[in-house]
C-alpha cells in the first residue's frame, strides 16, 4: 500500500514540474502553429535569473521566483519581437528550425555566463511521511505552486476578455482578426504567459534538483512528450499529459516485474526512464496521426 502511495506522490511531483513548462508549449502551438523548441530555454533563463536574484541580490526565494518569472515573461516578448514576429509568414518547419537556433543561442550564452558546472539553491527541507511514503515540504510547495499557476492560467483563459481573445485566435485566427481582436497585442500576451510559466517551472525544477546549462536537454523530451500526449495544441491537455507520462515512468520503474512473473526480484532499470518519455511521444505520434493531422489542418 505504501508503495502505491509513494508512486502516486512521485507521479504528482514530477508531473507538476513538467506540466507547468509544457502548458506554454501547447499554448504557443495552438496560436502560432509551430513547435517552439526555444520554450524550454525560458525555463533555464528563469531558473538562472531566480538563482542570481536570490544568491547575489539577496532576494528571498519566493520573491526571486516571482520576479524571475515576470522578467522572463518580458524576455519571451523580446525574443518574439526580435525574431519570431519578423517570421510570422514562413512555414511551420522554418519557424521550428529558427526556434532551434534561438534555443542554441540562449543556452550557449547561459553556459558562457554561468559555466558548465552545476549550481544549487541553498535550501533544505524536511522530510514528511504519510502511510510510509516519503515526500518533502518542498515537494508540497512545488505541487501547490503548479496547481495555483494552473488555476490562474485557467481563470485567465476562461474568465477574462483577453483569455477569450486568445482562445479565439487559437481556434480561428482569420475570423478572430476580422472580428477585431488585436492579434499582435494578444500574441505579445501569449509570449508573456509562456515565459512566465516556463520560468516558474524552471525555478521549481532547479529548487528540487540543480541548475546547469544543459538542464534544457533533461527537460526537453519529457516536456514535448507531455505536450504530444495531451494533443499538442491543448493547454490543459499538456498538463494532463505530463501527469500521465509521470505516472507511466514511475509505475514502470517501481513495479517489481520479476516477483510478478517468477521468484527473482527484477524491475526495469531506472536509466530506461528516458525511453519511456521518448517512446511514449513517438508511439502517440504514430498511433494518432489522423486525429492530430486533422486538427492541425482545421
Amino acid at each position: 500500500m505504501c508503495r502505491v502511495i509513494q508512486i502516486l506522490f512521485n507521479t504528482l511531483i514530477y508531473g507538476s514540474e513538467i506540466a507547468i513548462i509544457a502548458v506554454g508549449v501547447a499554448l504557443s502551438y495552438s496560436i502560432l502553429r509551430f513547435a517552439n523548441f526555444a520554450h524550454v530555454q525560458f525555463a533555464v533563463v528563469g531558473a538562472y535569473t531566480a538563482f542570481s536574484l536570490h544568491q547575489y541580490a539577496g532576494a528571498p526565494i519566493a520573491l526571486a521566483a516571482v520576479l524571475a518569472a515576470l522578467l522572463t515573461g518580458l524576455f519571451a516578448v523580446l525574443v518574439d519581437w526580435l525574431v519570431f514576429a519578423r517570421l510570422r509568414n514562413i512555414t511551420p518547419e522554418g519557424k521550428m528550425i529558427v526556434s532551434w537556433g534561438v534555443a542554441l543561442f540562449i543556452r550557449s550564452i547561459v553556459a558562457a555566463m554561468f559555466g558548465g558546472s552545476a549550481r544549487v539553491f541553498d535550501v533544505s527541507s524536511d522530510t514528511l511521511s504519510i502511510g510510509g511514503a516519503f515526500f518533502t515540504l518542498q515537494d508540497v510547495i512545488v505541487v501547490a505552486a503548479t496547481a495555483l499557476a494552473m488555476l490562474a492560467l485557467h481563470a485567465l483563459l476562461y474568465r477574462t476578455l483577453a483569455g477569450t481573445a486568445l482562445r479565439a485566435l487559437a481556434s480561428n485566427r482569420d475570423l478572430a482578426e476580422t472580428r477585431g481582436i488585436p492579434a499582435a497585442r494578444m500574441i505579445g500576451l501569449m509570449w508573456f504567459i509562456c515565459g512566465t510559466t516556463a520560468a516558474l517551472g524552471g525555478t521549481l525544477f532547479a529548487l528540487q534538483t540543480r541548475l546547469q546549462p544543459n538542464m534544457d536537454l533533461v527537460m526537453l523530451l519529457p516536456v514535448f512528450s507531455a505536450v504530444t500526449i495531451g494533443g499538442l495544441d491543448r493547454v490543459f491537455g499538456a498538463a494532463l499529459g505530463a501527469v500521465v507520462l509521470s505516472l507511466a515512468q514511475n509505475l514502470l520503474i517501481s513495479v517489481d516485474f520479476g516477483t510478478l512473473f517468477s521468484g527473482e526480484s527484477w524491475s526495469v532499470p531506472t536509466q530506461f526512464r528516458d525511453f519511456i518519455a521518448v517512446g511514449a511521444m513517438v508511439l502517440i505520434l504514430l498511433l494518432r496521426p489522423r486525429r492530430i493531422a486533422a486538427r492541425a489542418a482545421g
Partner: peptide, 20 residues
C-alpha cells in the same frame, strides 16, 4: 545494483527501491 544516468537532476526514483 543501481547505475544511474549521469547529469540527471534527480535520483529519487532511482533510489526508491532501497526504501523497501
Amino acid at each position: 545494483k543501481i547505475a544511474y544516468t549521469e547529469g540527471q537532476p534527480d535520483y529519487r526514483a532511482d533510489l526508491q527501491a532501497l526504501v523497501a
